[in-house]
Design a protein around this nucleic acid. Structure first.
Length: 551
RNA sequence: GGCGGAGUAGCUCAGUGGUAGAGCAGGGGACUCAUAAGCCCUUGGUCGGUGGUUCGAAUCCGCCCUCCGCUACCA
């Protein structure tokens, strides 16, 4: 391999990243898939670097609401979620999301993991039986104080003004989060970067300092859930026939959902795998579940004697005219419309370029189409097209090697460093932005060097012009190769086509595995000595003139 | 209410004391390798308001206005 020896550093490293599991109650919109698309680009980047990578996505399938919805449709909850989960998996496939495991909270190994976490919390003295009480709306369940409305007709929940509330008390298990305030504060102090962006960490620190209350971790009456594995005396609730005593209740959402991250790493069935993959390198989550992941989850892990995630990255929301995109608001974008218009790669690119990965971002169909045309069709797609055309026309298709060191090469050096830094720091939009500054520089080089003029001069026996023509076109081809490889995590199906047009093989598998170390490939001139032929040019990102599919 | 953040060109944003910037969108031009694309030039802003500090403020300080985030059991 050419270039400095950095493969030793990257080759044996392993990288484990997760997304939040999605609530399996509906077909996902683009705003839901945003996180998964971003995480997938990161996963592919690490796979291409040669890191042994594990990428986990999945669905959260237990909840009272899901049981209710299924019941309303006269269906078994499992059959209902099976159908919903299929929609998620199809959506992921459509966008070329490449999880190494798609985990479902209904998976049996996950039940074992949750049970083990409960047992460990109990063994640590962090579980106790208490009363969970509060206002209960028969249509909605327990209503937090923040959603209570009081008016002339009395007190009721915001969504059901006519339904009388009941004060209910349920006998539930509680987790002693209050015991973890000081431990969490110390952990935050000793790991100042473990929650990012920093302002998200500060919000959580403020919350912790305000005092922590215990939270309930079981439900007495809900049947659609993971069976609670122990009775009040701590004994197993498993019955002789292997089933679980319904009287013990079910695990409530926190333990049920969050534990998926360690189930996905092999806990507790495969200690060897678990030792290898845990702690994860990063949880990619949305800002709405920050508290769960950076306060409750770490306390649960501490209680179980397990290591904490190395990093939690908190992204923002996709907004439409300042409002959060959501199914209920109806202001969401259908990924199928996006893919139909922009292609899978186009959808991935514009989503991650238009939406900042560290805060909320306003997006729209029009902004996506504009971005697609400007960046993919005009800037990059056209650059590849004109480069390949010129090599064909002026050099008979023989791919020239890069010329002697020139400014474009040093441009690339700083660009690739900056690109990598942003990408590995989860600022995906910034990573793409710096890469496209380079794309602009390459386009300007074409106009500055005027290969068509050089070709004409070379045709008049100007040997210097001929030499310069080959050098310029060699630099252009090399720039296109590097941009395609660097962008491959974002545009996994088009990037190989770019390489193919440039006469290079695509050395990576469909999900980015099994190729040479990417950082070596991203060296300027990594394949300078290889002869080759460019293919016939073919537009990779056709320019669009697309009307909005939503009103 | 408390704590934190933000208000800069039509849009998205950069810019933390010294004559207002980028990309996109809009206008004009030259060229021709190219996906009517790329390149060059260019129209847009009393930098939320106000008072102050300073030779000089988008940039520092006070007050005000607007918006946003966090403020625990839907996830």
């Amino acid at each position: 391999m050419p270039g400095p020896d950095r493969s030793a550093e990257s080759e044996r490293a392993r990288y484990y990243l997760t997304t939040a599991i999605a609530y399996a109650n509906n077909r996902p919109g683009l705003h839901t898939l945003f996180e998964v698309i971003g995480a997938d680009a990161i996963a592919r980047w690490h796979r291409m670097k040669g890191n042994e990578t594990r990428f986990l996505t999945g669905t959260d399938e237990y909840s009272v609401n899901i049981a209710l919805t299924a019941a309303e449709q006269g269906r078994d909850p499992k059959a209902f979620v099976d159908e919903m989960v299929a929609l998620f998996r199809t959506a992921e496939d459509t966008l070329q999301i490449s999880p190494d495991r798609f985990i479902r909270t209904t998976d049996l190994d996950h039940q074992r993991a949750v049970h083990e976490m409960i047992r460990r919390a109990y063994a640590s003295g962090d579980l106790y039986v208490g009363n969970y009480e509060g206002w209960y709306c028969p249509n909605e369940g327990f209503i937090p104080a923040s959603q209570l409305v009081e008016d002339s007709s009395g007190i009721h929940c915001a969504n059901h003004p006519t339904v009388a509330l009941q004060w209910l008390s349920e006998r539930n298990w509680f987790f002693r989060l209050s015991a973890y305030q000081a431990k969490l504060e110390r952990y935050y102090a000793e790991h100042p970067d473990w929650v990012q962006p920093e302002y998200r960490k500060n919000e959580m620190l403020g919350f912790i300092r305000g005092g922590l209350e215990d939270f309930s971790v079981s439900r007495e009456k809900a049947s659609w859930g993971i069976p609670f594995p122990i009775r009040e005396d701590g004994s197993s609730s498993q019955l002789p026939d292997g089933s679980w005593d319904p009287a013990a209740g079910t695990v409530y959402v926190w333990f049920d959902a969050l534990t998926n991250y360690i189930t996905g790493a092999g806990f507790p069935d495969d200690p060897e795998a678990f030792a290898k993959w845990w702690p994860c390198d990063v949880h990619i989550i949305g800002k709405d579940i920050n508290r769960l992941h950076t306060i409750m989850w770490p306390a649960m892990l501490m209680s179980a004697g397990l290591a904490l995630p190395k990093l939690v990255w908190v992204h923002g929301w996709l907004l439409a005219q300042g409002e959060r995109m959501s199914k209920s608001r109806g202001n969401f974008l259908d990924p199928n419309d996006m893919v139909a218009a922009l292609g899978s790669d186009g959808t991935r690119y514009v989503t991650l370029r238009e939406a900042a990965f560290d805060r909320d971002s306003d997006v729209s169909w029009n902004s996506f189409v504009r971005r697609y045309n400007a960046d993919l069709a005009n800037d990059f797609g056209n650059l590849v097209n004109r480069t390949v055309t010129m090599v064909n026309r002026y050099l008979g298709g023989n791919r020239p090697p890069p010329g002697p060191p020139a400014s474009l090469r040093s441009d690339w050096l700083s660009t690739s460093l900056s690109y990598r830094g942003h990408l590995e720091g989860f600022l995906l939009h910034e990573a793409l932005a710096v890469l496209w500054v380079f794309v602009g520089a390459v386009n300007r080089l074409v106009d500055a060097e005027k290969p068509w003029a050089l070709a004409k001069a070379a045709g008049s026996n100007d040997a210097d012009a001929g030499e310069r023509l080959r050098n310029v076109l060699g630099d252009l081809v090399e720039a296109c190769r590097l941009i395609a490889l660097a962008t491959a995590p974002f545009i996994p199906s088009i990037a190989p086509k770019v390489l193919q047009q440039l006469g290079y093989d695509q050395p990576y598998g469909p999900d980015g595995k099994d190729g040479p170390p990417l950082l070596d490939e991203l060296e300027w001139g990594a394949h300078a000595e290889e002869a080759g032929h460019v293919a016939l040019p073919e537009p990779l990102f056709p320019r669009l003139d697309v009307e909005s599919p939503v009103a």
